[in-house]
Design a protein around this nucleic acid. Structure first.
Length: 221
DNA sequence: TGTAAGATCTAG
DNA sequence: TAGATCTTACAA
């Protein structure tokens, strides 16, 4: 790996690739390439870390709500579309929708190894070093220029495309619990390339539950 | 309508 | 380690 990404020779992943259970897709996305073309600038990176999110029975998933909501509707959409959402007030997350239309499922892209448009990514990440450009879901979305405008876009037809790449051997793939969840973290649905320096630094398990109350927030923002 | 929680990141 | 940021879901 480590070869320069060539769009002309890259093979876009077909929707059939995503028309499968998220845990399968999440594992097989490792080594594939996510690319965006925002403002005429191409940026791309090799996927080194993913998490699978399932449907109603997965308490860590946005699809665990009582039914389809305005936010999670895209998770029930056709496979091979982008599900982008905004969280924690300042971060966008990139997910790829899996399963047939009508069935909720998605894979969160958690970390990339930058390979194309590094200067642009560095600019979008305010001069952060290469290792820190895409080593987290919020970071990679920022580096790739992804925002809510990409939510629901079909891969390869909008600004986001996903291409086949050099998959790691089974021995290089590690599995763990998902990161940052207070519920559902016990499920081993996080897949990453072991020993890869671009994998995020997060650790499995629940985040601290401490929150400010409305009174502590001290009025409108 | 109000409250609580959240698939995070960064500064100190 | 704690704070910033604000959208979403759900209960009352």
């Amino acid at each position: 790996m480590g070869t320069r990404f060539d769009l002309a020779e890259a093979t876009g992943l077909p929707s059939a690739f995503f028309d499968r259970p998220p845990e399968l897709v999440a594992r097989e996305l490792l080594g594939c390439v996510v690319a965006t073309c925002v403002g005429g600038v191409l940026t791309a990176g090799v996927i080194v870390e993913t998490e699978a999110y399932l449907g109603r029975g997965d308490t860590g998933s946005h699809a665990s709500t009582r039914g389809v909501t305005a936010r999670n509707a895209v998770m029930y959409g056709p496979p091979g579309t982008a599900y982008v959402y905004f969280t924690y007030g300042n971060h966008h997350m990139l997910n790829l929708v899996c399963e047939p239309e009508g069935v909720a499922g998605a894979v969160l892209i958690r970390a990339l190894r930058p390979i194309e448009g590094i200067a642009e990514m560095t600019s979008r990440r305010h001069g952060r070093p290469l290792r820190e450009l895409c080593d987290g879901p919020g970071k990679l979305a920022a580096a790739l220029g992804i925002d809510l405008g990409d939510n629901g876009s079909v891969l390869g037809e909008g600004r986001i495309s996903v291409y086949d790449g050099d998959r790691p051997s089974p021995g290089e793939v590690a599995v763990s619990g998902r990161i940052g969840l207070t519920s559902g973290h016990e499920l081993e649905l996080r897949f990453y390339v072991a020993e890869d320096p671009f994998v995020s630094r997060g650790r499995p398990g629940p985040l601290r539950p401490k929150r400010r109350t409305a009174a502590q927030q001290g009025g409108p923002k």
